[in-house]
Design a protein around this nucleic acid. Structure first.
Lengths: 148, 148
DNA sequence: ATTGAAATTACCGTTGA
DNA sequence: TCAACGGTAATTTCAAT
């Protein structure tokens, strides 16, 4: 992980479809050299994939929320199975503290959110926070390289 | 947003570097036809960008946490400015409820997390949940198209 | 369909441990 | 000396018109 690789990661975070030639210009290498570095980053698991970023509002998902779930002791396995089967769940974090799980969900309407919470409430106590804005969204911290 | 566009979005969510030719085979269209559809999706703001996915552990960020911040009434603007300047903040959500902001942060060490919380505590009361696992991570809900 | 650009492969040279 | 890395060139595939 030299300075060039950090730069490549930053560039690919910002635009995952940059060509090797374009990346090469930005890091002062030729296209094959860049391709080889990226191949190694992928092979070693540093880069796990690439994905398009989608505006949820524009695909009919105007409502997103964070749902904290205090799962009943005996229902943990069942809960995990459930949330992995729910398409509305965009992200799920298993965390420390009384709320063992925090979900980020996306829905078409408040009634859909209600229906979703109804399904969760059999297995957990929930606390829902509606997301109003997302001032920051990155894929990794900034300034990792130089940060001691 | 016909069925083909949904399929394209799903495919690009899974692999944002698929070529138009490859996408074309998967949706039974020619490459130029796919290119035109994707150009429109980008132009209309449905697709907002592309990015690489990075394994944070492998780049020296073994610790991630969710931090709920109950920001002091008079410090909201200052708080927002601060979190947007902090590289450790990967995601920030402005939400309803007493905890006005929920952050996802990534750090190299517990002492770094401590230092980060020290900076936040001047402007807010915080509650920190360490992320242990991430059972689900997507960019949009599943089954949007057929979902009523 | 055609043209230019990009990806991919193979091969060679340089460097530094 | 040899292993790692980058450059060059040729071929194939892709993008764009």
């Amino acid at each position: 992980m030299d300075k060039t690789n950090w730069k490549l990661l930053e560039l690919l975070e910002q635009n995952g479809r940059l060509t090797y030639a374009e990346l090469g210009k930005l890091v002062h290498l030729t296209a094959p050299a860049v391709a080889e570095r990226i191949r190694k980053l992928e092979e070693s698991g540093v880069i796990t994939g690439y994905s398009a970023q989608v505006n949820l509002e524009k695909v009919g998902i105007p409502i997103t929320a964070l749902v904290e779930c205090q799962v009943y002791r005996t229902k943990e396995r069942e809960f995990k199975t459930l949330i992995m089967s729910l398409g509305e769940v965009i992200e799920c974090y298993n965390v420390t503290g009384p709320y063992a799980f925090v979900l980020k969900v996306g829905v078409k309407s408040m009634s859909k959110l209600d229906a979703l919470l109804e399904r969760l409430i059999d297995l957990s106590d929930t606390n829902t926070m509606m997301i109003m804005t997302t001032p920051v969204k990155r894929i990794m911290p900034l300034n990792i390289a130089q940060d001691s």
